[in-house]
């Protein structure tokens, strides 16, 4: 009796400990977000008098307004607004084009292999592993040559090219699990290359399309490297603008505006993550665990 009682007591203690640890980790991840939100809602003097965790006495969205409309990002002082739209204009076509190309590549690489198709895939896959620093200088030259330097279309092109390796990998790994017999059945039914793709393969691809678009959306929206190098002035994406806003050294440091700006820059990807993150993680982890 005593013995089983002790075991149960140990069990309860053990469970309590596990939940305590999990809670502590949750706080670790949540506190920075909390700090960002609280800071963005405080007036500057409250920031100076309080501390990171103190709640705002007089919550105000003033900093948000400034960040959106009038904060200085270098020479201009029009807030992040324009850059937010820039990012949208850049991310949507880049994401769609690279996903569609990736789907077509994956289809050919699994269902219509030809001598040499695997060589193309291996060559492309290198793009998943290289540090992009090795292509920055030649790319700058090419963008200049085709007249896309410093522009959003140029950035779209860069993101499509260097996202293609990833989207192709996603779709290839997904399509490899679709039995070849399905394609054979369609061929016997008389379906052509494209009919099979659009009528049979694409309707089956929803999960991987979700993964690919979310991945590309987050990668491209969050990109800073290509943005800071290949865009300029009014054509910059929001990450670059945010960094400029935070590091603009004129006048007093407005931490509340910085935080509001950071949240604005993070909102789209956070939104996507909360809405569809489940599929995202499932897809991302599937390939790497098998290895």
């Amino acid at each position: 009796m005593l013995n089983s009682g002790t075991i149960r007591w140990n069990h309860v203690l053990g469970r309590a400990f596990i939940y305590l640890m999990l809670g502590a980790f949750a706080l670790y991840y949540l506190i920075p977000l909390f700090v960002m939100v609280v800071t963005s809602l405080k007036p500057l003097d409250e920031i100076r008098s309080g501390n990171l965790l103190s709640l705002p006495m007089q919550p105000t969205f003033e900093a948000w307004g400034i960040a959106w409309n009038s904060a200085c990002t270098g020479v201009q002082c029009n807030g992040l607004q324009g850059y937010f739209y820039n990012s949208m204009i850049m991310v949507i076509p880049a994401m769609l084009i690279s996903t569609l190309l990736g789907a077509m590549n994956g289809y050919v690489l699994t269902k219509w292999k030809f001598p040499g198709s695997n060589v193309v895939f291996s060559m492309l896959l290198v793009g998943c592993f290289i540090p992009f620093q090795v292509i920055l200088l030649p790319m700058a030259k090419v963008l200049g040559m085709v007249g896309l330097a410093g522009s959003l279309p140029g950035l779209v092109m860069v993101h499509v090219i260097y996202g293609l390796a990833f989207t192709t990998l996603f779709f290839r790994n997904y399509y490899i699990t679709i039995p070849d017999e399905l394609i054979n059945a369609a061929r016997i039914d008389g379906a052509s290359f494209w009919t099979t793709f659009f009528k049979i393969i694409l309707p089956l691809s929803t999960p991987i399309i979700v993964v690919s678009t979310i991945w590309q959306f987050t990668q491209i929206w969050n990109d800073f490297l290509f943005g800071v190098i290949y865009s300029s002035g009014e054509q910059q994406p929001i990450t670059v603008a945010l960094n400029n806003l935070v590091n603009t050294s004129t006048g007093v440091k407005r931490y509340n505006v910085d935080m509001a700006g950071a949240i604005i820059a993070a909102l789209p990807t956070l939104f996507v993550y909360v809405v569809a993150g489940k599929y995202f993680v499932r897809g991302l982890t599937a390939g790497s665990v098998k290895g």
Binding site: P179, E181, L182, N184, A185, A186, R187, I188, D189, G190, A191, K199, I200, P203, L204
Partner: peptide, 20 residues
């Protein structure tokens, strides 16, 4: 000839039904 022009019909081991 291509499969579609051979006047054949085929039943597969995994059935290969179009899932959608």
């Amino acid at each position: 000839r291509d499969p579609k022009d051979r006047n054949i019909a085929m039943v597969f081991q995994s059935y290969a039904l179009y899932p959608t």
